[in-house]
Nucleic acid binder design. Structure first.
Lengths: 295, 295
DNA sequence: CTGAAAGCGCTTACAG
DNA sequence: CTGAAAGCGCTTACAG
């Protein structure tokens, strides 16, 4: 770079022989620039590999970015969402002064209609970005489309729906989590053992999510034991009767050595095992709560 | 806040009836300000709970911050330090344009003299902050003192020395790691079992570090089993003869159910077990490599 | 010991 | 369709 070279918009303006206001218009794709001028400027931008200085941008702009946060209220799972909220607030206290505003929209985890109501409310006000827990599959897909229509970026938290192509996903890697479970359980098993993997998901939607954990577990197992026998079932309710019925059937058929429940509902199976006084079956569950890191 | 209130240095200057240059002098504790003026300004700053705008600061200042990175070269442990370097480079590509410069100082992990040579070199040039792996205890303490003398901030990576009061520590929480091992191993043990925990640290220094992992393991175990019997030994070399000698002694005395080696040198004990064809002892080790997150 | 002024790289009315 | 100018909240010579 020559020492005489101005940087940023000024240099672009100099090269294009226009004012920086015009450069700014092109940079933000605003109307009111002659096609020819626009092209010239665009070429120079490309030529220079121009990267705007975000510090200067933020300093000069009065614009406030508004974020909506769409997560379950904590009425059922006491305190589960405390940690992410703490994290959001901590980030806010760091960046809030640079033009960020937060709005919370808490919905009832058991009520998909309420989820839809809440996300409709979000769009009543201008919003730039959204963090959401997409625990209802179909409704969340609809929501994603609405975000795209409104040019609003969205990020998933806790549950992921890869197909909905969020900007990013904050939460556990369920596939890896399943592999870890497999890794630990390998010491409890032998070749040709029977293993039962149970997904218990109250709404159909998160079943797909839990499936990932099963995949990880299964892949690890099959890499370790060629002839292990893994049966996977998904229950769409946490009703004890149904669970008992299924377990009766499955455990009668074969000698199951290990049961892996892919989420925290493992206690339901624990009760079954206790009631039937089963001695030879090992039980494993998975719970990965959010954690507040000490800083 | 009144709408007429200016913000930042301007407002301070207005209230103190001085120029912003003088405010700046006080803010940076520079010489050449009358004691009275200084006090007045200091009071106003406190009153306003003034927080400088770091965006404006960085934009206005031409100052470049220089960071030194003092970590082992990878000649022995192939690739172990690739991940943190990737992380550093990724952060650099994000922030480098805002005035950050990096210098690497790689030392020989087996040679504490080399570590000292390298850190002497660091101070030959101006430096603002240092990331280091303090794997040599005494030398790292000396280094910390040198940093304090030079008013240079330092951050530890991989190994922590709490007493050296670094700005922060990047790495595994060894105490929690030990608890996790305990948590998993509880299913392999019963009340009154004998457990052996072995720290194998080539240099005395990291022994203290490994101790933390033992603490976590022990605490979890004692919370779970009241009468479990845990023996802990620390070896200062990875010499197989010495290890074998110690293991002979320890395993003769009592019926050991589980051996936990607090780092990756677990393979040394594995060899012993294989050679002696021990069947009833379980072996557990811990390796937590750095990982590159996919983004 | 203190202040006026230019500048960092952008954005934002406003004027033409 | 385009430009001159002020401003964001700081820092940095320079002058006195």
């Amino acid at each position: 770079m020559k020492i005489t070279e101005l940087s940023g918009v000024k240099e672009i303006a100099r090269r294009a022989d226009v004012s920086i206001a015009t450069v700014d218009r092109v940079l933000h794709n605003r109307l009111g620039v002659a096609q020819k001028t626009k092209e010239k400027i665009l070429n120079i931008i490309k030529e220079m590999d121009y990267k705007p200085n975000i510090l200067a941008k933020r300093l000069a702009s009065k614009r406030v970015y508004k974020f909506g946060i769409l997560i379950p209220n904590d009425h059922n799972k006491a305190g589960y969402w405390k940690a992410p909220i703490t994290g959001i607030e901590s980030a806010y206290s760091e960046f809030g002064e640079f033009g960020v505003e937060l709005s919370y929209y808490l919905f009832d985890k058991e009520d998909r209609k309420n989820f839809v109501e809440m996300y409709d409310v979000i769009f009543e006000q201008p919003v730039d970005g959204i963090i959401l827990a997409p625990i209802f599959l179909k409704e969340s897909m609809d929501f994603a489309i609405k975000c795209l229509e409104n040019r609003v970026q969205y990020v998933f938290i806790e549950t992921n729906i890869p197909a909905a192509r969020a900007l990013s996903y904050i939460g556990a890697d369920l596939y890896q989590s399943g592999r870890v479970v497999g890794n630990i359980c390998q010491y409890l098993l032998e070749e040709k053992d029977n293993v039962l993997v149970i997904n218990i998901a109250k709404n159909v939607d998160s079943a797909e999510h839990l499936e990932k954990r099963y995949e990880g577990f299964k892949d690890f197992m099959l890499e370790t034991f060629k002839k292990i026998n893994i049966t996977n079932i998904s229950l769409e309710s946490d009703n004890a009767e149904i669970l008992n019925y299924e377990l009766d059937k499955l455990l009668k058929k074969r000698d199951v050595r290990l049961i892996f429940v892919t989420n925290g509902r493992v206690h339901l199976v624990a009760e079954y095992i206790r009631k039937h006084k089963l001695k030879n079956v090992k039980l494993v569950g998975t719970i990965i709560p959010f954690r507040i890191l000490n800083t």
